[in-house]
Design a protein around this nucleic acid. Structure first.
Lengths: 342, 342
DNA sequence: TCTGGCACTCGCTGAGCGTGAGTGCCAAGC
DNA sequence: GCTTGGCACTCACGCTCAGCGAGTGCCAGA
């Protein structure tokens, strides 16, 4: 009844405001939407919505603008699942199927997401917690420095440069390589770390120190810490589209994009499980980003720990469209990872 | 004499304009610089400089602004080598010495450059033309898909996902791995490509197809094509500092930053050898970037093909400072790569 | 509960005006 | 032959102010 119409009015306000970027008035509203009532009625509803804090008037003789609370209600109760168009589906499949490796999947996903949503896209590199060690390679760069390369069953590769502090002969290195691989190959990360931890005690004392250095580097590479910290960002050029409020919106976001740790926090806190989550304006932890929203979700092969991906944009954004795009890309990427992981 | 003073006036104009971002007038000029002449004289010089096209007047009754030609003269004849401060040197060494691998060196360099110059920094990943193959790893993901991982002597790692089109047994894969490594390990890229090319003819016919797929992927990974196309970008937040002329300067640059191919062209054309090169405004190939300049240089271990790094910013930028920073970072990175390469 | 009418608010726009930084030119001086 | 002080001139910028119009709140009647 009345309550329903009020929600319809709110929805109409959000939609119009997102489309026009201008405060929307009662008259324009009835013209553009078939609400079946007069502007006066809409005005009453607007007054009520404003009392409840869903919309806000920039100044007396202006139209209304949704508040964060208004967007929240819109997102929670007023948006259905917006299906992707055929062209969009095609874009997703063709672009992502061409990926040659894991990094490429991530890079392409970022590009895809930013193009679909015309927002800034952020994709976290998948964590590797459940994967197993495929191979460890030790490459001698100088007599005292070794590059440790860890290859995982997912195809993910981690590298570490190790300064041994002492010279190592080629045979020693070969022996060490064999031992490390015997201990770690085929094992899950966690198990491999344990097995490797025992290695220094098993070798002849002279090489114990060197072994320890290598094992430490491997352990570090395996702790997904640094992996967690890696994100790909794309579509920053889309920021150009909201050229107004440059200082309040664009600048802080541009700064945040440089700080990958901040981005991860942004993505991480917005996400729970594999549902698409939306965080609107001030709901986030950063006051400087109070006029930006985050739409994010977890993704990953079914049996693996989640990574997250999503988009960041102005609170005045196309939530249904962004949510649909984020969901679709996450699903498709998950499927690719699932295949790759068998 | 007169000519000398005119150049001094040009230098003063450039310096003041870079500092204040405002057209500079004759009076302000004599106040801030000890030119030893009166404003009237400076005005005469300015008129001459304007006739020659080195400076320009936005409108009558305004001060003068350097033209691209003026900046060019400034860069070519009026800037000495500006030494880095002790603090800056320290920043370079401490930040770069902490790098764990090649990718990390690049990432840190970008960060460093953008912080030193307060501009957008771009670093191309080093090419690998002269390096040798250290190891090739084949990881079976599904019965018909294999991840090919190429490890080079520089520590660089390339991955390719290969769809074999047919199933491959574990023993077959192990055999193939051995053969590939026997053919390629220790060889230079070019030689390895040749040796690998012969492989499909040497194996039993049943595995020839599969072998060919793998070899093709390796050859692709070794051609430095995709490597060349990789760049790291940082400091986009610095764009926020020139909030004026958002549309003419910030937006096109932001868009260019997304297009790594464009960036490479930008860097590449600006660079020749290991000298720091400056390209100013319209001198570049992109008309949209006519109000930005590029300061770039080649870098890399002495015996290797060059990669490039540099900064991009408004034509109104601190050229001496940027050139010094670019030169210093390039040198230090080259040294690190030299060590790593022994 | 909805609607039409009406008075009111107030940001936006554009015109008009004063101010001052900066110029170009000229005649006198070193 | 440069350099300099003086002087008239130009013109962007900032300010004020009035008119416009979109939009509102309220009220009385359907």
């Amino acid at each position: 009844m009345v309550e329903d119409r009020r929600l319809a009015v709110l929805r109409a306000i959000v939609e119009d405001y997102v489309a026009t970027e201008e405060p929307v008035g009662s008259k324009a509203l009835v013209e553009r939407h078939s609400l079946g009532v007069s502007p006066a009625t809409v005005r009453n509803d607007m007054a009520a919505l404003e009392d409840e804090g869903f919309i806000h008037q920039p100044h007396t003789s202006a139209g209304r603008v949704p508040t964060d609370k208004g967007y929240r209600l819109f997102v929670d109760r007023l948006t259905g699942v917006k299906p992707m168009s055929a062209a969009e589906r095609r874009a997703i499949t063709t672009l992502l199927d061409g990926a040659v490796d894991l990094d490429d999947v991530v890079r392409r996903s970022v590009r895809l997401l930013s193009q679909l949503t015309r927002q800034v896209a952020i994709v976290q590199y998948p964590t590797l917690s459940r994967s197993t060690v495929r191979h460890v390679e030790l490459v001698s760069l100088t007599p005292t420095r070794v590059m440790v390369i860890l290859i995982l069953s997912t195809g993910r590769v981690e590298q570490r440069l190790v300064d041994l502090g002492a010279e190592i002969a080629d045979e020693q290195l070969a022996d060490l390589r064999t031992r490390v691989n015997q201990a770690a190959a085929g094992e899950r990360i966690a198990d491999a770390t344990v097995a490797l931890g025992r290695l220094p005690d098993e070798v002849v004392p002279e090489t114990a120190v060197i072994t320890r250095e290598v094992v430490t580097a491997l352990a570090e590479a395996m702790s997904d810490h640094r992996n967690d910290a890696r994100v790909a960002v794309g579509g920053a050029a889309n920021l150009a589209r909201f050229g107004d409020n440059f200082d309040t919106a664009v600048r802080p976001l541009l700064e945040a994009l440089e700080e990958h740790v901040v981005l991860l926090k942004l993505l991480g806190e917005a996400t729970s499980g594999d549902a698409v989550t939306v965080r609107i304006g001030h709901e986030g932890p950063y006051s400087e980003l109070s006029s930006t929203s985050v739409v994010a979700t977890g993704y990953g092969p079914a049996d693996q720990a989640f990574a997250t991906l999503g988009v960041v944009g102005p609170t005045r954004m196309d939530y249904p469209g962004s949510m649909a795009a984020v969901r679709a890309v996450a699903r498709y990427v998950s499927r690719i990872l699932d295949e790759g992981h068998q």
